[in-house]
Design a protein around this nucleic acid. Structure first.
Lengths: 225, 225, 225, 225
DNA sequence: TATGAATGAGTCTTCATTCAT
DNA sequence: TATGAATGAAGACTCATTCAT
């Protein structure tokens, strides 16, 4: 279910020492680019944060644009991997839908809102996408292009099991995610880390509203009663 | 209900010619800043787009930071004004809640997604707020702090009228907006203008789910039957 | 003994209103140039300080270099006038040489160290002379070229009267001035205003040493006993 | 008696190649700053004169203000070192006070008036100190605060030996220096190099007057007879 | 004459990128 | 590979000067 590392990663030499350096560089680039934006980020700052020399950055990844692309690819892969890892824990045959869905939502919020990689990626996409549209083909494919259908598939299974009632699973998946991130977007973008209690409250609010909206009306709202 | 112009606008001399220039500068600044980000925007580019000399920019608004703040204040004011203008059309005593709420949602989407001012402002906030939090003081005061309570108040009125059922109006208002923008966020940020049909579909989806979730269960879901 | 105003002053129109503006400009220029140096001074700052518009500066005096030259000429004239006014009070036939010479030295210190014009001029000369050597022909002629001989002539009269003993009046005049300004130079350049008591002490120290050095040895140190 | 190099010098890396570059930069800065003033000097001009790139200036010393301070510290140190080297040759137990003091004065004049470092420093202090007092902290500590007392101590030793008669050694030291530089100040500031003969004459004039003023009257003026 | 705007140049500072060691 | 230096190009900001009103 997860995407293999070499799936997205740009070409790189296979020497493990280089790998390490390259990873350090991409990590640093992710941090700096997402904090400073493409224009505001300086190669030197990235090199310093990565603990390598400026030259090594150029040797390993090339110029600023190549570095940016490599980093987006890397983050996309990591974020995707985290998402699908959580998705595997979706409660397909729950005994208590409400509580298990809340738990799942919590896990999702945590990868979404607590993993710096995901946050950075989202931010970068929203910041730089219009300037480098070609940079985000990879992201579009592995990001929303895979995530919403994957969630939709899980929701459809719940509907098949008669636990909820759905017309359009894709729409429902988008609305599920929207409700989940409704209260978190601004804070997270501002850099705040929500507490466990907050994550729980937010997940509960979202799932409650979602289940109220998509309750299986035929035989009451399952898992609510 | 709307906010008077002088409410937010920073001090400026009243000479109408200056006003015109100043407005041209702020418009240009909004466009360039939102496309290039704070660090990536150049004062010269803004001056050229505004059709004035670099000096005039400095004379009218001061340095880059002041220019940015003035522009945020201006956009905030415009966006706020548009929002409250639409809010005045909220169906407080609807004959057909579903359809009137959809119409309202369409109007809201249009100000939100079609007005460049709003789009730029949102983009800037999401892009730059964490890097330069001090640049957004005006927005913080007039933006989210006023919009959600205003929507919440309308929803509360619907609840009082028995048309929907609410525990937490503020939460409901956030979820209403989240559902509304769920399908639009990324595309709009990328610069795409949704068609009227799309807007209508999106509004319908959002309102339908919202009303299902907050239906007045005591006597059926009004407006749905 | 004093130099007529029109002696040095550069050409200017004779309209008294213009005169006033021109004077205000030159005063402001003196203050700004001496505080900021030629390169550091801005025409705008001078115009603001003079209470006129930038254009008026250009109309009245021309460009920055012309303004500088006009101001040096003006300050030279004022400083010279003050010096010669004090010089007229030199004790040529003193009843008590020591005390009358101290009084004279005090007056000299006051014009030298308390009149901003003199201080500014000195500073400007030392600052800009190497860059604009031609600007200081006027100053050389009216400054040291006239002051030292004038003092020397007074000292020679004292020597003729047998009150002091001199070989080289010019040298003595230079040493007299050097002793007088020995303790004051740095402080004054830093902008400090010495108090009356300090001026008195400094003058006393200088005159005492001077008279000890140039005492009429033939018949004791006159005026000391 | 001399001040060790590391006493004043600001922190710098110890690599001799860097040292050389750094020194070249500071030398160039001294020349340009003293000719053009702080505001008038351009970093580019300094870099060109130092034969390095602009970047190297920024890497080695930082921005304009840091460069200025580093240069003042360097000049202060050099000037101080030269002064104290000469001071070590002060005739404490002279066989012929007059001639040995003249020789000493000549040496002092030469370090004062022939060493560009000293001249530049003096000029900078008189030009910029009131405008940028914070730039001269190092100088204030190592400059006048140490030189006058050091001279005063030597004069006091002469007085103790009964060779001169002093009330206030500090005052006498200031007057000694004032007489010495009385004839030299303006010319030197204008960039003129006095000839050996002139230096000798000036030193003789100063010392003669000084000794006449401070002759040990109890037993005749020693060294004059 | 005063005001505001415009032009063009210049200065400080930073940066991406490359080269030599 | 790391380091320091160099180059060339921005970009922010200021300024002298001129023009129009």
């Amino acid at each position: 279910m997860t995407i293999a590392t070499h799936d997205i990663r740009l070409a790189s030499n296979a020497d493990p020492a280089s790998r390490t350096k390259r990873d350090a560089i991409l990590d640093a680039a992710a941090a700096i680019f997402s904090q400073q934006g493409f224009a505001g980020a300086s190669i030197d700052a990235i090199a310093v944060k990565a603990g390598v020399s400026r030259q090594t950055v150029y040797n390993q990844v090339g110029d600023k644009e190549k570095l940016f692309k490599a980093m987006v690819a890397e983050l996309t892969q990591r974020s995707s991997a985290g998402f699908f890892r959580v998705l595997d824990t979706f409660p397909i045959s729950p005994t208590n839908l409400q509580s298990e869905l809340v738990d799942f939502a919590c896990r999702l919020l945590r990868t979404y809102s607590c993993d710096p990689n995901s946050r950075w990626l989202i931010k970068l996409i929203e910041n730089e996408a219009s300037r480098y549209p070609e940079l985000f083909e990879v992201w579009k494919e592995y990001g929303p292009g895979r995530k919403y259908p994957a969630i939709a598939a899980r929701l459809a299974q719940l509907a098949l099991a008669g636990l909820i009632e759905l017309d359009d699973p894709i729409l429902a998946s988008r609305q599920f995610m929207a409700l989940l991130t409704a209260e978190i977007r601004t804070d997270v973008l501002m850099g705040k880390q929500p507490s466990d209690a907050e994550i729980d409250r937010i997940a509960t609010n979202a799932v409650t509203t979602f289940l109220k909206a998509f309750a299986a009306r035929g035989h009451g709202a399952p898992g609510l009663g």
